[in-house]
Amino acid sequence: MKDVAFGQYYPVESFVHKLDPRLKLLFLIAYIVAIFVATNFYGLAVCAFVLILAVAFSRVPVLKVLRAIRGVLFLVLFTAVLNVLFHTGETVYWQYGILCISKEGILFSVFFVIRLVLLVVCSSLLTYTTTPVSLTDGIESLLTPLKWIRFPVHELALIMSIALRFIPILSDETGRIMNAQKARGADFETGGLIKKIRAVVPILIPLLLSAFRRADELGEAMDARCYMGSKNRTKYKKLTFGWRDAIGFLLGAAMVTGVVLLRVYLTGVV
């Protein structure tokens, strides 16, 4: 039960795992931009190549990476079918009313499917290779400029990390409460949807109550350890930008430049 909630982090040591979380976050953003800047297959090929490289160096099994697509499979297929049927083109193979299947339509829909798959794989690679804790650290560090407009960056990061810390505790507790209710004759398995939803209430209320009590105690313990917000606070862990990050950065920069150049010089392939 304890390991369930820790996202989908895949614990191995690899080049990608050791990258600075900030770089990985920025890379993901750059990647998304690149995918949408690419308007032809050459551009997408560059993106795909970079992603394959990243997956290879992450030591996450390919099957596990592909499993990420399963969640969005329906969406991908649905948009593909719509694109094929509604995209008009010059070389028409079949037409019925407004529905038509054309060479251009098929190409466009293939293009779109590749885009979506790359997007999903890249973002799940981030969560496969980065622990929630370092992801939080990365987000905090990247948001630091917002402190200028008095955005509570530190507080936000603390809330996120405390939430992560309590996930295993609350999931254990849910198990305990469920067992306690079962011991009192509660039935969670049978019945229709409405009945099942109703059965959740006697779990939810004690859980909520206990969460509040925990929050109260935690607040007291934080007070006792001199917590006063972000004022005058130092930070022990520092994120460092190493040689791996330099390589990652160069690769990302090269990819974006390549995609932009391909768009400018090779217009109209799709």
Binding site: S161, I162, L218, C226, T234
Partner: peptide
């Protein structure tokens, strides 16, 4: 002060981060 419930007085997920919390607070 060390309180009663060990689960409700740790802030971070990793040991060293939690031990550092108080020292970080006072700069």
């Amino acid at each position: 002060v060390v309180f009663q419930n060990p689960d409700n007085q740790t802030v971070a997920s990793i040991v060293e981060d939690d031990v550092a919390f108080g020292a970080e607070n006072v700069g």
